[in-house]
Write a protein that binds this DNA or RNA. Structure first.
Lengths: 107, 107
DNA sequence: AGCCCGGAGTTTGTATCGCAAACTAGTTGA
DNA sequence: TCAACTAGTTTGCGATACAAACTCCGGGCT
């Protein structure tokens, strides 16, 4: 039987488009500050802020706030867990996609 | 500049895991009844029902209710639009994924 | 006939979520 | 001094997804 439970097991924390963008950016740069993420993802600052908070709560990113040139600076990086989860997520999507491509007949 | 607006343009109607599963199943079988989808996706009947309604409202699937052997039978198939949109969706995800894989340094 | 079981869906209630807009805190320029 | 800007955070609300309850119908059983 064709089983698509892969899709149902998709990680909702990561799957959300805004966070998928954030995680994908982070997986390519390893560390980025708030302003960079803001531009790279096109998210508003408000949404970026709250999505980052969620990702941090989920343990997928590590956030470090410092002051650079007297200005606040928020630095974000994937945690080890985050790195694993985003990779898993893409793998799962890939599997799901392939299921869709193998043409099968109903029952 | 690394631009991830692809992610933000993701089709939320399709992106939702439950519906992604439904659409993916449908794209491989071309037509399926409610019971088949229920088993194939692992969704509860209630959720399957409401997701199908949303997909129908969005014009992505066509639903036909008949009686077979005196029992209700709900048959679902992708519309032309639905076929296009699910393909687009996978393409967009693919692009996003590739962006993540091209290692780049922060500004 | 009367009654309960199970299949096939649908409706409802609630809790969560994502977004935009408003807000805060500190800095620089005129 | 005060207006404008940078770098974020908080809030209000409309939309959403899920589970649980409900409906409707067709057999068996007694």
């Amino acid at each position: 039987m064709l089983r698509h439970e892969d899709a149902l097991a998709l990680d909702r924390l990561i799957h959300e488009p805004a966070r998928l963008a954030i995680m994908t950016v982070l997986s390519s740069v390893k560390s980025a500050d708030f302003v960079f993420l803001h531009r790279a993802t096109g998210l508003t600052k408000g949404n970026l802020s709250s999505h980052l908070t969620k990702l941090e709560e989920g343990g997928l990113v590590k956030i470090e706030k410092t002051f650079v040139l007297k200005r606040p600076n928020t630095n974000v990086a994937l945690t080890r867990l985050g790195t694993r989860r985003i990779a898993d997520h893409w793998a799962r999507l890939e599997r799901l996609k392939n299921l869709g491509e193998t043409s099968a007949d109903q029952v």
